[in-house]
Amino acid sequence: MADLTVARALTDALDIALADPAVVLLGEDVGATGGVFRVSDGLREAHGPDRVIDTPVAESGIVGAAFGMAVAGMRPIAEIQFMGFSYPALDQVINHVGRVRNRSRHRFTAPLVIRIPYGAGIGAAEHHSESAEAIYTHIPGLKVVVPSTPHDAKGLLLAAVADDDPVIFLEPIRLYRAVRAEVPEGPFTVPIGAARLVVGGEDVTVVAYGAMVREAEAAAAELAASGTSVEVIDLRSLVPWDVEAVVESVRRTGRAVIVHEAPRTTGFGAEIVATIQEHALYSLRAPIERVTGWDTVVPLRRAEHHYVPTRAAIAAAVVRAMEG
């Protein structure tokens, strides 16, 4: 076991993945600086500049080239600096990465990973706080995962690299260095598609992912003091997501609160709500609450606190759900 931050757990996973000669890491500034968040710190020295590749500033190029490498049998890991800079690569992602398997009926595949730091809460410049996961979850052919702990960061990244399909790997910026935890040494994987029970509870199910998991956990702890038993589920994977875990929980609690920092309209929460009502409508004792960001651009530093959901907002939603 090693005591690691999310950032260091990712470094560890990358280091292990790079032991396979089919794996390369490519992106802007991933080499000499170890990337904007220092996730690839030391990896160029360890694996060489041909395996930890500093690219020109060109996201479509990074993803398109990674796609080509993947088609040719490699397992590239592409890094985009911030989610707001992943958009120039969307044509590659939508039209090629997510489709080549179907287009060639399994003859060609794209087992690449695209790592994207995402999310608000650090008072960053415009485009540096995006939560556009719903764009990616809406693209057929991709898997989308979002770890929220050092353990899952490592295990999911190794699972993503091993996966035979393209995986969008979202890294919550706020969590890179905010939490430390024991992480097993050496290779292990966390299955893609399996949620994690964060805390068990009986009255309300709170479903969250990414940086919102910690907020949900804190809200649950506060509410426990006042006698409300909150179950918190960390989705960890958005495509595919663990419908069974969520539905089973809601059948027991009869109440659900969905949390994400992305804009509300057509956010991933809407998908969860729709699925819950398909499977557990008659178990519901209250309308499902959504705690989300607003349908706005994430405000810049001085007003960002009006945007990002807080533990208080989650707790308030739980109370509303309890009141039915």
Partner: peptide
């Protein structure tokens, strides 16, 4: 460009 010299662009 951040850590890359022009010769790498």
């Amino acid at each position: 460009a951040i850590s890359l010299p022009t010769s790498r662009q």
